[in-house]
């Protein structure tokens, strides 16, 4: 507005001296503010973090030293100890994924607003799912080690309880995306709630269900590898032992085994997904 009226009164040359700027002043100000916050956060972190300068200077050398001691990996350690621990890890991941559905399916049904019309139940279910997700699987493992004592049982429950939030959230989203028409048709035919779910909803969410299960299993294979660090069974236990005894060639064997399993799990999941969908 201003630029339209002021030239006619004041400076007649003003339209010729147009200035190009990429952002309006307001935009520039907010961009500047964002940058300022970022830089301030970094400066604060650098200045107050408890890092010992000698350690920092020493770090590359120490890392190189560690890697040299790790090479070559001692493959002789693989069987039977590492192998058995690896199998146990896979059991923990798989059982944990299976068991999580016992809680995740009812919670997902409760959280989906088109399935469960009762508002307070929605909120309770959503909250449980969020709580399950915000506690990391290692922390869940700590809790379950306190309950069950050290061992694979704690690991299975840790994986299961961490997965409930993830699986439940994705499942309830899939449920909310289902088409209402088929359910309406089945209800009009006099179907009970269970039959409506079984024949009207389940066929629609089935592909999503298998996809979510596989996706979570893949993540759980990675996660279950570290549970042993807090005593919840699996290959993490072997890794912890090897590190505490400074057997670096053994550590590298374990690490390679974990890498291989994670890779194989990813390949299996990709294959199965492309066949299922």
């Amino acid at each position: 507005m201003n630029s339209m009226t002021s030239p006619s009164f004041g400076d007649p040359m003003a339209p010729l001296r147009r200035e190009w700027t990429r952002h309006t002043p307001g935009q520039r100000l907010s961009r500047f503010a964002v940058w300022l916050v970022c830089v301030a956060a970094i400066v604060w972190a650098v200045r107050s973090i408890d890092i010992i300068p000698e350690f920092l200077a020493d770090a590359p050398e120490q890392m190189a030293d560690l890697l040299i001691r790790m090479w070559p990996p001692n493959v002789a350690h693989y069987y039977p100890e590492v192998h058995n621990a690896l199998i146990e890890t896979l059991h923990i991941a798989t059982l944990g994924t299976l068991f999580c559905f016992i809680l995740a399916v009812p919670l997902a049904l409760m959280a989906a607003r088109n399935i469960c019309p009762i508002k307070p139940l929605n909120v309770v279910a959503q909250f449980s799912l969020v709580a399950s997700r915000s506690v990391n699987s290692l922390v869940w493992a700590l809790l379950f080690v306190a309950i069950f004592g050290p061992g694979a049982a704690a690991g299975v429950f840790a994986i299961a309880f961490r997965s409930v939030g993830f699986v439940g959230k994705l499942l309830s989203e899939a449920l909310e995306e289902t088409n209402h028409g088929p359910r309406e048709a089945l209800r009009a035919a006099g179907a009970s709630w269970g039959a409506e779910m079984l024949k009207g909803v389940w066929p629609q969410v089935q592909p999503a269900f298998w996809g979510i299960a596989l996706f979570r299993w893949d993540i759980n294979v990675r996660e279950s590898a570290v549970l042993g660090l807090v005593g919840a069974g699996g290959i993490g236990l072997v890794l912890d032992d090897a590190i505490n005894f400074f057997q670096w060639d053994r550590v590298s064997t374990v690490l390679l085994a974990i890498l291989a399993v994670v890779l194989v799990a990813e390949i299996i999941v990709t294959r199965l997904r492309s066949r299922l969908l």
Partner: peptide, 13 residues
């Protein structure tokens, strides 16, 4: 019985 405009079949069955 009811017949719907959009058929409302369960498509994956």
């Amino acid at each position: 019985g009811m017949v719907f405009q959009e058929y409302n079949l369960v498509e994956r069955l």
